[in-house]
């Protein structure tokens, strides 16, 4: 090399959208602020007000009642059950998501689009139906009902039923995030890694995983939020046995139907805090991923 190379000559430059706005793309101030106002009023009515009302109602009868509501044994049992479900469902669906995305994006085969559609299928199915199908499989009159009864295995109205119904509902979340991301990244980095002598596993952990970590985390967060909050499917298969098969959303439902509004909103406020944390992490991931 005789001459120094120009460092900047083709480094990527990101033009900020919206930052450079030409005259042709501007509306009058009245239009602009009316649109902003419409948006804010709409969001206030539909999103902010409900959120605020949850916390206000929860704390209506004072801090002591609030603490009592969320430390009630049934509430604690519901929190514990929900956490158990999360710890089983989220890792299993994450592994599935990674494996499926690897198969779909690193290889070419026939029927790939059909497979992607099938993975998306649970998004189009009502949660109530998601619960129903497992009753049809494992319920007393179900396909395996007789056999399960004889062998004394409980699936429906027990933890396994809640887990599997939640798995169905949250099935596509991780895969859906990873497939487009890995498709965009292509396979050359993996090829380079293997041609440099790395094994398949080393290639995955050293090259693929770091590249998809934000997408994976994003999928995990969404999967986690839905797992915690799933109501319809779990409602069908749980049997509502208080202290045994009640998840947090089901516990809220029971309290609400028994007119224990403060207690219901207290547990709801816990879940709302989780939701807000989810949104913050999600935004952090988006910001971090954009940064890289």
């Amino acid at each position: 090399m005789t001459k120094p190379l120009n460092v900047e000559h083709d480094s990527p430059s990101i033009a900020g959208h919206g930052a450079t706005k030409s005259y042709a793309m501007q509306e009058s101030m009245i239009v602009k602020w009316s649109l902003i106002a419409i948006s804010l009023v709409f969001l206030a009515l539909f999103l902010i007000l409900p959120l605020v009302s949850i916390f206000v109602t929860a704390l209506e009868k004072g801090w002591a009642t609030y603490v009592a509501s969320i430390t009630d044994p049934d509430a604690l049992a519901a929190i514990k059950l929900t956490l158990t479900v999360v710890l089983i469902v989220v890792p299993l669906n994450a592994i599935f998501g990674i494996v499926a995305a690897w198969a779909i994006t690193k290889f070419s085969f026939k029927g790939k689009n059909v497979l992607i559609t099938l993975i998306d299928l649970p998004f189009a199915v009502s949660p109530v139906i998601a619960g129903l199908v497992f009753i049809l499989l494992f319920g007393a009159q179900g396909l395996f009902g007789e056999w399960l009864f004889q062998n004394d295995i409980k699936i429906v109205f027990a933890l396994p039923g809640i887990v599997i119904a939640t798995m169905f509902v949250t099935f596509p979340f991780v895969a859906r995030e990873l497939i487009p991301l890995m498709q965009m990244q292509g396979i050359t980095e993996e090829e380079a890694s293997i041609s440099l002598g790395a094994s398949g596993w080393k290639t995955f952990f050293l090259v693929t995983l770091p590249n998809i970590k934000w997408g994976l985390l994003y999928g995990l967060i969404l999967c986690n939020a839905r797992t915690i909050g799933e109501f319809g499917a779990v409602s069908v298969v749980s049997g509502h046995i208080r202290g045994m098969t009640n998840t947090m959303p089901l516990h809220i439902e029971i309290l609400y139907n028994e007119y224990q509004f403060t207690a219901a909103f207290a547990v709801a406020s816990l879940m709302s805090i989780l939701a807000i944390i989810t949104i913050i992490i999600k935004n952090f991931i988006e910001w971090k991923a954009k940064d890289e």
């Binding site: 599935f96 494996v99 499926a100 690897w102 198969a103 779909i104 690193k106 290889f107 070419s108 085969f109 497979l115 099938l118 993975i119 299928l121 649970p122 199915v125 139906i129 998601a130 129903l132 199908v133 497992f134 049809l136 499989l137 179900g142 396909l143 599997i164 798995m167 169905f168 099935f171 396979i187 993996e190 090829e191 293997i194 041609s195 398949g200 290639t203």
Partner: peptide, 29 residues
């Protein structure tokens, strides 16, 4: 066609998991 490993394993796992969790239960309806 490719030097990237794991095709049979990953596709097999995907199909199996998909069938058990989604397709078989849905077909019950």
């Amino acid at each position: 066609n490719t030097i990237i490993p794991g095709f049979t394993m990953t596709l097999g796992y995907t199909m199996l998991y998909l069938s058990i969790i989604v397709l078989l239960p849905l077909s019950m309806v």
